[in-house]
Design a protein around this nucleic acid. Sequence first.
DNA 1: CTTTTATAGTTCTATTTTAGAACTGTCAAC
DNA 2: GTTGACAGTTCTAAAATAGAACTATAAAAG
Lengths: 92, 92
Amino acid sequence: MKWDALEEEPCSLARTVAVIGDRWSLLILRECFLRKRRFEAFQASLGITRHLLAERLKKLVRFGVLRRIPYQESPKRYEYILTQKGLDLYPI
Amino acid sequence: MKWDALEEEPCSLARTVAVIGDRWSLLILRECFLRKRRFEAFQASLGITRHLLAERLKKLVRFGVLRRIPYQESPKRYEYILTQKGLDLYPI
DNA sequence: CTTTTATAGTTCTATTTTAGAACTGTCAAC
DNA sequence: GTTGACAGTTCTAAAATAGAACTATAAAAG
C-alpha cells in the first residue's frame, strides 16, 4: 500500500494518519502551537532536514492544516499559520 | 536525526511520535480497539506487510502499549492486547 | 561597487525504511 | 501423508529520509 492510497480511505483515522502519521508532522504542529511560524524557526528547533521540512509544510498546507501567508514582499517571504482545522488537532 | 534518537527526547510528544508516529501503528491500535488481537487478523484487515506488522507489534510491546499473551500451547500462539497505557491512547 | 547576511527554499547522493512476495516451523484435521 | 491454519522470518526492489551543498532575492555593511 502506498502513502497516497491511505488518503482515500473511508476511515477518518486512516486519512488523518495519511496527513500526520509520520516522523515530523506532529512535531511541526507542536512548534506551530508554540507560535513558531517560519521555515528557519522550524528547521532550527526541530533539526529536520530542509528538504523534508519543505515537503511536510507543503503537505500540511495541501490538507488545510496550515496556511501559507506572505509576510513581506521583495523578497517574497512566507510564514505558516494554523487553520481552524489545524487548531482542532490540539488535543492530539 | 534517527528514529531511535526521538525516543530519548525530553518532550513527551516527541517520545509519543517515536512510538506511534508512523504509517501503521495507529491503524494497528485502531484494530485493537475494535477487538482484533491476532497477527492474521491485523494483517488481513490492514493490508500491512507481514514483516512490518511483526516489527510494529514488537515495538508496541516494547513500549508497553500492547502485551503479547499466549492463548494456546502447542503450537505456541500469541495474541496482542492493549495495556492500560494502550487504552490511554484512545482519545488520539 | 563588492561582500556579507538573512530567509526560504531546491538539488544531489548515500543510507534507511518499506513493499511485496516467498519461505519456515508447528501442530491439527482430513 | 497431504493440506491448511497461524505466527512469524527472509529476501530483493522500490520508496522515503538524512545530510550537505547549492540557488534566488534583496537588504545591510564596508
